[in-house]
């Protein structure tokens, strides 16, 4: 049986463009009163400027950009760890989590699953965090100015895992325990895939790095036909 994991990066909406377009007409229409009084006003303004000169230089600053990053399993960074200025990049790798059930063990209870992910160090600061080959790294961040709500980390699994003969195993037979070396308060709670629907794993506070190591297990409570049962879980980080 194999379960794949995939990183998804979502686009953010940008409301600032619309705001800027609405602001322009206010500058384009300058209300005028009688010409005489306007010219007198200009003369007095002219006199004031001659007297005092421009008394301030101005600098317009614009907000920091919004960004979103999610890494599940393998990831890419260049230039060191994230905390030391490394730059996160896209990585198309889809890692697997799998377990082989011996015939004698069919239906006898939970079995730990292994992964082909080799990520053991936290991409944030390089510290030893996840254990190979049992844990899958899940981490990222949501960065945004303003008072927007938290981003949502979710996972969507199909109803079941399927083999070539069309036999199925419900996806809710797969669970995970959240852990990590010296991680006393795991970010992502322990859980079980609901199967057939997206489920929220965590609400991510903006401007804060989050990370967990997920160790999966197969419940192994039923007798199933032989073969390789497959299903794909998609992890998504969604910003408001």
């Amino acid at each position: 049986m194999a379960s794949n994991h995939e990183a998804i990066v979502c686009r953010l909406t940008d409301r600032r463009k619309a705001m800027r377009m609405r602001a322009l007409p206010a500058f384009a229409h300058s209300p005028c009163s009688a010409g005489q009084s306007r010219w007198r006003g200009l003369i007095y303004i002219c006199g004031t400027l001659l007297c005092t000169g421009a008394q301030a230089f101005s600098v317009s600053i614009t907000p920091g950009t919004r960004s979103l990053f999610l890494q599940v399993g393998a990831g890419t960074m260049t230039g060191g760890n994230f905390s030391s200025g490394g730059t996160p990049g896209n990585n198309a790798t889809v890692n697997s989590v799998s377990v082989t059930v011996p015939a004698a063990s069919l239906g006898t209870g939970s079995l730990a699953m292994n992964t082909d992910s080799t990520v053991t160090a936290s991409p944030y600061n390089g510290r030893a965090f996840c254990t190979m080959p049992t844990q899958v790294y899940v981490g990222g961040f949501y960065r945004a100015p303003g008072t927007e709500q938290r981003a949502i980390l979710s996972a969507a699994a199909p109803v079941s895992l399927t083999n070539a003969s069309g036999n199925t195993i419900p996806f809710n037979r797969v669970s995970w325990v959240s852990a990590g070396t010296a991680d006393s308060a795991p970010t992502i709670a322990d859980g079980t895939f609901v199967g057939g629907a997206s489920q929220t794993l965590r609400r991510i506070a903006r401007n804060t790095w989050f990370e967990s190591c997920l160790q999966f297990s197969y419940a192994n409570t039923q007798l199933v036909g032989s073969g390789e049962f497959k299903g794909t879980v998609i992890y998504t980080l969604t910003a408001p």
Partner: peptide, 22 residues
Amino acid sequence: DDSGTVVSQGVVPMRWRQLVPG
């Protein structure tokens, strides 16, 4: 009177001090 002052950039995009938050 600093009317002769010249600013290199009239509009300055602010950048997060850390590329990613800690």
